[in-house]
Every structure is written in structure tokens, then in C-alpha cells.
Write a protein that binds this DNA or RNA. Structure first.
Lengths: 336, 336
DNA sequence: CTTGACACCCAAAACGTTTTGGAGAATTCT
DNA sequence: AGAATTCTCCAAAACGTTTTGGGTGTCAAG
């Protein structure tokens, strides 16, 4: 309601003293400090954020870019993560702004706008590509940032990611141990790191087992993409008996394809993300998920430490993948 | 990278002229304007957001409060709505910040912080209560805001809401027309407007049909809440043959209760929200949803118009509810 | 030649804070 | 008593814009 000048005037003090009193500096006497605080409380004084930001040369803001186009916005708990992140950032005086990418603009444009307009102190990037121009741009500008997902960037940068390679390798090996020999992979767009990483995991396991890696079909990371990719694999002369799918959404699409082609329930399947709806599919979808709780807090912590100037190499978290066994991975190895 | 002063110096012009040239004022010659624009483009000049905000007395920010506690964060497409809203706000130069409510603080505290620190030009409120202190506060302060959900506030305020009363009345009447006479309602916390509104719709239909309104149980707007409330209704001497549930999550909980108590599939059920997982429950969950596409754009438009000073009474959108018929509402009226 | 009108430009104020570099008074030390 | 130190406080600068209120020429009209 009021500003520093009015508050100072009403107290018969200088702006400086009031400001310092509120910030708890030692060079204002305890009695004055108390007097100032009481007056500030009474009129409900809050420093004007814009003025403070201008003077301090800090935006007090962090932006997260939201991919709007194809593989859309991520799993439903993504908002919970953002919310948790925002909450922890707020405790440090930072607010989180969401920056969707409008049609016709690239994510790079968004970064540029935020960074060059000094609108943010740091950025949070999701859905990294193997070669990610946003990462390169921010590294060149020297702006702190954290990504959800790794990249193939030469210079290290802070990230949080799941170990998709290990997860998909383990899932594939498990199918092999259960007797499966024709294990197919439903891949996502390989430009995305997570899709490529998971594909590599499947491929590595297959090669370790001396199996052919021909049963791989790529599609959009959506229900429809999984459906089409599964149909493609089911058309092969030697069908898969098990399917390792890059995402749950694709797995659910694959489930639909299976139902249509052979009445379903003959082919084992596993996805990734632990979507809530996976509990209700038939058969209930076995899946994987990244371990670690309160990811939002981790993102916030990494962001704050990046802003504080910690070296990137110390700000990397690779989380293990855990299985969420329901039922869809238990079909027999020898299909009809 | 650069600021106005440096840009002006390099051009041999005053700060004023450069600023006005970039803003397209007519009192700078076309040739100068062009020259300035080119130079600005070349060095990638963007006005410093904090300085502009301070001078203009606008925060260029809108905050949305995210309830973190009990009925959590809303349907999965909520983030899509926010994203759409943010995108349209961005076109008007506003960014959307998400403001989760930390433990120990009230939503009112959040509003106070944002408003009194002049951190926002407007606010977006979700999950309104019938008597909502946030609404009262913002009205008293004269800050523009839009709510998702109505309130019982005497003074009108901008909102977007679904017509829960009409929707739940129609759903109940439809059960009646199908021969049901014992139609139960699984209610949400009645302090929330949406929960109360939907409950009123059910009650109104029951009274119109001359039926008793004893089959009503309240629970938290979660799976567990619906489960417990359904169990309560199933313990009645004269059981319901149909259940109208305040949310899909509660309906899914009710489905679980039904499965446990009588093997399921005997009692009709309908929810609200059109959660994706409803398509996979057994039986597939019949539900309702608010009509209208691109809600995010609507929120943005209302916010902008509220900021522009349009009277609140013209900024209210009540959307019809439509049925999403799957299978769970088709059980016979006479249960075992 | 004077008077407006017009086109183009600029100095300075303002937005509300934080921070720098003291100033004056009181206290302690020598 | 004088010097040094500590305790309080403050004036002014700075952050980078936008906007106000002219100022200086040029040109046409009177």
C-alpha cells in the first residue's frame, strides 16, 4: 500500500534507515528497528518488487518452457513436480513462470526473449533433445539452467534424468530370462535423448543376449504412435512375443493394436512413466518409473545451486529406474 | 546484452529518441527509426524488463494459486489449460507465474504477498469456496482477478465455471427416466462451490421426482473419499441402484467399493471431469464434462479484459455440461 | 519580416528500491 | 584531555526505462 518514502516520512526517519532496519542490518539501533518493523507491519508495507529487482539486478524469476506441440506436455504428475519446484523456489524468493511455446515460435525464441530481456535468473528446460539448441544458447549466454533429461552437449550442464538405458536394458533382460527371444521395441523420436537412451538400453540387452535387433518401430510418443508402431511389428513374419515400449502412452496404444490383431493377451508388454491409467487397462500395464521423491524440490535445489555458481558437473542427478509390475508383462514366452 | 544508454551513444542519439524510435512513435523521422531498429536488432537489444515494469507501474505478471493440500491439483488437463492461458497472456506481454501454497500458509497469504508486493497485475484463482476469503481480499484491494468456479460473493466477479447444477440435475433425471428410484449422491466437501452446486443439482432432481434425498454421503474429492462414501451408502438398508458422483476420482473409488461389496456391475454410476483413465475402468466410466474448447484462451481473455477495466458482470462464463457416455451408467434399475 | 505550424530531437524527472560513503554524537581508550 | 572507536543515522547515486515538457530549425502563410 505504501512505499518506503511515505513510511520513512511518517516515522521521521530517512529512507535509508527504514530500508536497513527492515533488512535487519546491524547499523540501526534495536529500538529503531523495532519501531520501524511495527510501523511497516501496521501499514502492511511490502517492498515494490519491480524496484527491488531493478536495483538488485535480479529478476527473482525462473522460467520453465512447456512444449506445446507434438509429444505434448508430459505425464500428469508433471504439474505436481512444477508445483513442488515452485514452492521451494518461492522459499528462496524466486517465482516460477510457465512459458509455453506459441505456434510459429521455437523454444529457442522463448529462451532468447526471457534471457535477453533479463526476465529470469535461470531457466528450467524439459524434453531435451540429444542436440539441444536451447542448451547451447544458454551455455553461450552463461545463464544458469537445469534440464529435465540429458543431452549430448560436450560441456556438462545440470540435469535430472532417469537412467533409461539401464531401465530398458533390465526390462529386456528380464523378458529374456523369462524365455522370450523375439523382444520388440517401440521407440520414440530418436532426436529426443530419453527416447534414444531407452532404445539403446533395449538394443544393448538384445546384443548381449545374441538376439537380432530387427524388431524396432518408431512412432510419435502418443497413444496413436504406439498403436501404429505395434501394428508394424505385428506384421513381421516372425512376430515379437514381448514388447518394450518407450512410454506408457505408446504402450497403451500397443495394447489396442494387440487387441485388434490377435485378441490381445498373447504378447507381454511393458511401458514407462507409471501413468495412473495404466492401473486400469486390461491387462493392467506393467511399467517403470524414475525413483526419487519430491523431484520438484530437487529441481529447485539444483536451480538455486546453479544460480549460486556451483559448477555444472556437481549438479547432475541420474536416477535409477524401478519396475512397477502389474500384469501385462507376464504373458508366456511362446505365443500362439 | 546492451542497454538504452549504450545503444544511444553508439548511434549518436539521445536515450529518448532511441526509446521512442523503438516504440514506433511518430515524432522520430522514418530514417532515424529505421537506423535505430537496425542497430537494436544487430546488438540484440531488449529493454530491461524490471526497469520497464518499474517505470510503467505494471508487473507484467499474472499469478495462479495452486492448491497443494487435500483435493490436490485438479484434473490432468489442468496444466494444458494453464499452458493455453499463459500462451495467450504472453501475446499481450504478460507472463503467468504459478504460486503453490506452501504448508503452513494460506492461499490468502499468497494473494497478499503477490498483491501487496505489486508483483502481479492480476490473479487467477482455482477451486473456489462458496465463501472465499481470497475473492473478498482481492475485491477489497481492487485487483483484477478471474476465478475458476463461482462463489457466493455478493459483489459479482469474473469467473469461468461449469453449470454443475444443471449437469447433475440432468444426470439424475436421466437415471429416473431409466427407471431408477434409489439414486444416491457422492458429494464433495460442501464448502467448495462446485461440490455444493452439484449436490444441489442432484437434490433438485430428486425433489422434482418426489424421491427421498437420504442417499447422500460426503467425502474428500479423491479416490479414497469416493470409496468410503460409497461403502456408507451401500450399508443402507435400502441400497441405491444408481450413483451420481461429484468427481471421476470419487467415482473410481466408488467403483472399487462396488466391486468389493457386490461384485460390481449391479449399480449404475456416473462421474464428472472426463479423466482419461475413466476410459479404462471396468466398466468404462460414464462421466460429464464442461463444454467449451480452449479454456485457457478464455481465461486469458477474461483476465486481460478485467485488467482493462471491464465490469465484472460482463466477465462471467457459465458453460453447459455434456455427458460422456461410456458404460457404467447402463446397469438395470432393479438391482439384485 | 513576423507568426504559426510542423518535424525532429533531447534533457531531466520519475518509478521505488538498495547501497555507498560518509557525518555527527556518544563512548572507550591512552 | 585528546584520540580512537563505536553507534546511529542519512544524502545521494545508481539500476534502465518511459514520459513530460520543451527546444531548435524549416517552411508556408500572413
Amino acid at each position: 500500500m505504501a512505499n518506503l518514502k511515505q513510511l520513512a516520512q511518517s516515522l521521521g526517519l530517512s529512507i535509508t534507515t527504514v530500508s536497513r532496519a527492515l533488512d535487519g542490518y546491524a547499523d540501526v539501533s534495536a529500538s529503531t528497528r523495532e519501531r520501524v518493523r511495527e510501523a511497516a507491519d501496521k501499514v502492511g508495507y511490502r517492498p515494490n518488487a519491480s524496484a527491488r529487482r531493478l536495483r538488485r539486478q535480479r529478476a527473482e524469476l525462473v522460467a520453465v518452457t512447456l512444449p506445446s506441440d507434438p509429444g505434448h506436455i508430459g505425464p500428469p504428475h508433471f504439474l505436481d513436480i512444477l508445483s513442488g519446484c515452485a514452492e521451494h523456489l518461492a522459499a528462496a524468493g524466486l517465482n516460477l513462470v510457465i512459458a509455453p511455446v506459441p505456434r510459429g515460435e521455437s523454444e529457442l525464441d522463448i529462451c532468447r526473449r526471457f534471457v535477453d530481456g533479463r526476465r529470469v535468473d535461470a531457466m528450467l528446460l524439459v524434453r531435451t533433445k540429444r542436440k539441444d539448441e536451447r542448451v547451447e544458447f544458454l551455455q553461450a549466454r552463461g545463464i544458469p539452467f537445469v534440464t529435465n533429461g540429458r543431452t549430448e552437449s560436450l560441456a556438462p550442464h545440470p540435469y535430472i534424468d532417469g537412467d533409461g538405458f539401464a531401465g530398458f536394458r533390465a526390462a529386456t533382460l528380464r523378458f529374456h530370462a523369462a524365455g522370450h527371444r523375439r523382444i520388440g521395441h517401440i521407440a520414440g523420436p530418436q532426436e529426443y535423448y530419453f527416447a534414444h537412451d531407452r532404445c539403446r538400453g533395449w538394443r544393448a540387452a538384445m546384443e548381449e543376449c545374441g538376439l537380432a535387433t530387427d524388431l524396432c518401430a518408431e512412432g510419435a510418443p502418443l497413444e496413436q504412435g504406439g498403436y501404429l508402431a505395434a501394428l508394424e511389428l505385428l506384421r513381421q513374419p516372425s512376430r515379437p512375443t514381448a514388447l518394450v515400449c518407450t512410454t506408457d502412452e505408446m504402450a497403451i496404444g500397443a495394447l489396442r493394436a494387440l487387441r485388434e490383431v490377435d485378441g490381445g493377451n498373447q504378447i507381454s508388454i511393458v511401458g514407462h512413466d507409471d501413468l495412473p491409467m495404466g492401473a486400469f487397462t486390461s491387462p493392467p500395464l506393467s511399467t517403470m518409473r524414475m525413483t526419487g521423491e519430491n523431484l520438484g524440490a530437487s529441481f529447485a535445489s539444483l536451480l538455486l545451486r546453479a544460480i549460486a555458481g556451483e559448477p555444472a558437473a556437481e549438479l547432475q542427478e541420474l536416477h535409477a529406474i524401478e519396475f512397477v509390475d502389474r500384469d501385462s508383462h507376464r504373458r508366456p514366452a511362446k505365443a500362439a
